[in-house]
Design a protein around this nucleic acid. Structure first.
Lengths: 337, 337
DNA sequence: TTGAAAGCGGTACCAG
DNA sequence: CTGGTACCGCTTTCAA
């Protein structure tokens, strides 16, 4: 293990000052002649600037802290993968923290603390709430935070979601147009903005169409809960089910078919939300609402980078709109889909 | 945004030297009196040591670089989650890199380079090969590498896998004991040690039991390929299928049922490998081989930390053994399961 | 044990 | 544009 090559080594070999080397690699002004000499020497020596030293003085680490909670829901690995890639393209790197199952404020606190210790330039919280105290700490430290796929009213935090209310409304339209008159709803966790918004949009549009849900049960984004909710709704004789997210929807369809012996579609139509990769399976050929994950991720990154680079930038609340595509095996109404 | 509190501030307030503060926080020798004064002052000021500065001088960042390739396969998000947690417990943090679909050596090269730039203390490659040149670079930089869930013969790299050969053999026993005589195999990618080993163990034990597979097709860990392979094998009249991993197995079962209209079990039994969370679905109540993910992760972390802390430690090849549990909906032989 | 001082490897401001 | 120099915040000898 040979000693690290430093900018001094490069300077010596190139016959310039160490400052010159620094300028060349930090993109500051330098004549072409100097630049060439330096690059050549660096190349020969295998020199790479020390990121730590740079961060120490500039005060920016080019590292983003990312907190993910539900990696069991295929939506998040997908998002994580995109994040890491997009950040990389922007010259940032991703320090990942996962939150235990029943994590409390203490856990979140510790994690945030660790991020601050590492001088992250920004934080992405994927479906994780942030206590007001912590938000304040981040603000005091001057670290931008963006909430991904979850809003927090009045938090003053930047947040990116998709048009969940609109999505919920579309599902209502879809099912009603499909001739369903006994529609049930296995809701996403009502403690989350995402869950609430979808439900709200759904219920509101249903009412506009002169209908009311046969029943609404909170599935809490949990398989077992979703199954329980399904049983309740099936007992009330639903002919269609709107499930708060695909992860639950798979379990629900599975339960309907295997345990309850119902046909989908036929006995009951099911519509999910998220369009996670698994939706490709034939047996789970779910009618679903596509979330524009790609654009959500890009918007999140943009919002973060924006705040990092321009400290005066406002924390904005972004709602990604767009063609929420419905498709799949539910009884498809004419003119829709 | 107030200026960061430094060890000097704490020193001033505690009435000691800055060195004293440093010692207290780096666990070096200090009298109880000093220690108390310092801690109190630190507490009052909200002081936290600057990780970057510390890393710069110590040469250890306490950051692990982790490269993941197939986040689409539920096995990996699960592993990632465990890694991040176990590393956290050990006082390390996880910098995540994802590899694009058809990533070549260039991509891996760039990623490794970035890790080196960040002075990671160690690298975990989850199912990603590492070119010899790159391995050499890591070695030169004195950075330990551990291959997770994939071996690379003669690489001299530390690697952790489970007993894949044994697992494959157990599947052979299981299916034969279940009375199957026309067994097919949708293999895991034969370019991977994991895939090869499972297949080898399977084939060898089958031979010992006086049987031969009706057919072996490489599924390449890909849905479409697995489905294609399934068609081929079904055409040959298989009554049982061993699929190289659960991710493919779900697609295979799905195809068998939905497209081909076969009953599982009944027309054909299916055994997968990995025991990813989805296996809990009733319709996909897959008979599967459980990989001891938890222990694999712990072993990987241990191997890495070991090499980091004791530079003279050997890069070991670990094969996690243990009760590979078979279960699920396949035709279950007496005395097994 | 303790404090003073020398770095770790860069960046940024300075005068030239 | 260039080189000299202070400094980022901490760890680590070294004497005292």
């Amino acid at each position: 293990m040979t000693r690290r090559v430093t900018s001094f080594d490069v300077a010596a070999r190139a016959g310039v000052s160490q400052s010159a080397v620094s300028r060349v690699f930090s993109g500051a002004s330098a004549s072409k002649a100097t630049s060439d000499k330096v690059r050549e020497a660096a190349e020969a020596l295998g020199y790479r600037p020390n990121v730590l030293a740079r961060s120490l003085i500039t005060g920016r680490s080019r590292i983003i802290g990312m907190v993910v909670a539900y990696l069991g829901n295929p939506f998040y690995p997908d998002a994580l993968e995109r994040f890491s890639r997009v950040f990389q393209d922007e010259g940032y790197h991703t320090l990942v923290f996962t939150l235990p199952e029943g994590a409390g404020d203490t856990d979140t606190d510790r994690i945030i603390q660790q991020m601050l210790d590492h001088q992250v330039d920004g934080i992405v919280l994927a479906s994780v709430g942030l206590g007001d105290a912590l938000a304040a700490r981040c603000e005091a430290a001057g670290i931008p935070v963006v909430l991904f796929n979850r809003g927090q009213a009045g938090s003053g935090l930047a947040q990116v979601t998709s048009a969940n209310r609109l999505g919920g409304a579309k599902v209502a339209e879809f099912l009603v147009a499909g001739g369903h008159r006994r529609i049930g709803h296995v809701a996403g966790w009502q403690g989350s903005s995402t869950g609430r918004d979808r439900t709200e949009g759904f219920v509101a549009r249903l009412a506009e169409l002169g209908q009311e849900a046969v029943g609404i049960e909170d599935g809490r984004y949990d398989h077992a809960e979703a199954v329980r909710a399904t049983d309740v709704l099936v007992a009330r004789g639903v002919d269609a089910l709107f499930v708060g997210n695909d992860h639950m929807a798979f379990a629900v369809m599975d339960h309907l078919r295997s345990a309850l012996g119902l046909k989908i579609p036929g006995d009951v139509s099911v519509v999910g939300y998220d369009d996670v990769p698994m939706a490709g399976f034939a047996a789970y050929d779910l009618t679903t609402v596509r979330q524009p994950v790609g654009r959500m991720v890009k918007a999140t990154v943009a919002a973060l980078v924006n705040q990092i680079e321009d400290k005066s930038a406002q924390a904005e609340v972004t709602e990604i709109d767009g063609p929420l595509i419905l498709r799949g095996s539910a009884r498809i109404p004419e003119g829709l889909a």
